[in-house]
Computed example of a mutant assay.
Amino acid sequence: MRNRIINFLKTNQNILEICWKIAKIFLKICSLFVKIDSKTILFASFGGRKYDDSPKAIYDEICLREEFKDYKLIWAFVNPNKYRIPRGEKVKIDTYSFFKILLQAKIWVSNSGMDRGIELERKGIIKVETWHGTPLKKIGGEENKNSLKRIENLVEKDKKTIRCAQSEYDREIFSRIFNAEKSSILLSDLPRNDKLLKYTQEEIKNIKKELNIDINKKVILYTPTYREYLINENSETYIAPPINLKKWKAKLGKEYILLIRAHYAVNAALEIKDDDFVKNVSDYYSLNNLYIVSDMMISDYSSTYFDYSILSRPMYCFAYDLEEYKEKRGLYLELDKSLPCKINKTEDELIKDILNSNYEEKSEKTYRFHKKYSPYAGNASKIVVDEILKKLKEK
């Protein structure tokens, strides 16, 4: 029911705008009576749907720091009972308790906005909005069609919110769509990616065991993004790539295992029955773990290209609906000029590309892509937490 309501509001902009305005007025009045607690930090990942990504990496770093030993750490979740956290408390998002803590917390840490789109201005708080990936597809109101566009008369640029960028490429986009000063956007990469440069072979072995992956086979990770204009009869977003998994298994099954990870905003993905070749890992708790155990990755218009490139492993593009996607959503980059791989529009082309590729050559192309679009990877969590401490000292 919650997803249906959210999808309905996303596709009915006028109603959503009214809801936002009412909520903003209500919270502004409430803020007059709620004092900020200087030692409370509120965390949320993907609107409370996850316990992962950059907010989790920042949380882990904060838990290690002596400076935060007496801070109250609170995670907001859609389903708090689903997660166990080693330190702190949990709150159900979009409830009275959540909005009360939102007004009280000195520090907000999120990857897609903490105030539920209300754009609440609370003097004295520190906002950390890492975002959740370098944009290949258009975002933030710059989409071509079928996406929410909030246009307001913004004059003064945001200098206070702590944001992260992987390179000058996404820093430029973020400064524009968030109306932010470039200097406030850290060239740090994303905290979630720190781990990609620190994994061990023992970890790979353990993750494969956890996922029941044959250690003698190569692993292909497929990470298709969502199409917000594809809505089923239940008002759910879905994807339906033109693939025949029996064909994939016949061609690739002896040497490879396929992991399919749908975008977090997809409610209804392929109906996949796990077997010894294909596994649906859309609900698996750690995307990084999937990156780490994969020998190569397939995607389409996803930010996963920028993250996975840090590993310098082969990447493939399966853009079966490229013209439709460019028309309805829009892309910042020309795929054939920017990605370190061919643009395959059919599954036969893609399978042939995988079977005929030189692993070392493709890895080298990915490495060059990484050096262009994610050259700062490795230490983002420390950089962000240091920036939080810096702001805490400011008066």
Rank of each mutant, 00 (worst) to 15 (best):
G330P: 07
A377W: 08
S175F: 03
N111K: 07
F174S: 10
A76N: 04
E324L: 13
L322Q: 14
P375W: 07
E89A: 14
K39W: 04
R261A: 04
L136K: 03
N356H: 05
I207V: 15
L221T: 07
A380S: 09
D295Y: 00
N267G: 15
Y308E: 05
D194T: 02
Y305L: 01
I239Q: 09
I41Y: 11
I36E: 01
T130R: 11
V128M: 01
S31R: 08
G113V: 06
F99R: 04
E347C: 11
A240I: 03
L148I: 14
C317Q: 09
S45H: 01
T161K: 10
Y226G: 03
G140F: 05
E67F: 06
Y305R: 01
L197Q: 13
S303G: 14
K72Q: 13
P314F: 10
A268C: 12
S97P: 06
I207G: 11
E156L: 13
I351C: 02
F33T: 08
R329P: 00
N267A: 06
V281I: 06
T237V: 13
K218M: 11
E143K: 10
D295A: 07
E394C: 04
N288Q: 09
Y284T: 03
D295M: 11
E233S: 15
N111A: 05
K159Q: 13
L103K: 01
K273G: 05
D295H: 08
K273N: 13
N206M: 11
K246R: 14
D353K: 02
E349W: 03
K328V: 00
A319Q: 06
D348G: 03
R261W: 07
R49N: 13
D37R: 12
K39Q: 12
K382E: 13
F98C: 07
D353C: 08
W108A: 07
D275C: 08
S338V: 15
V34G: 04
E17A: 15
G113A: 03
P224S: 03
E364M: 12
K138E: 09
V385K: 04
A319W: 06
S286L: 01
E327Y: 05
M114T: 10
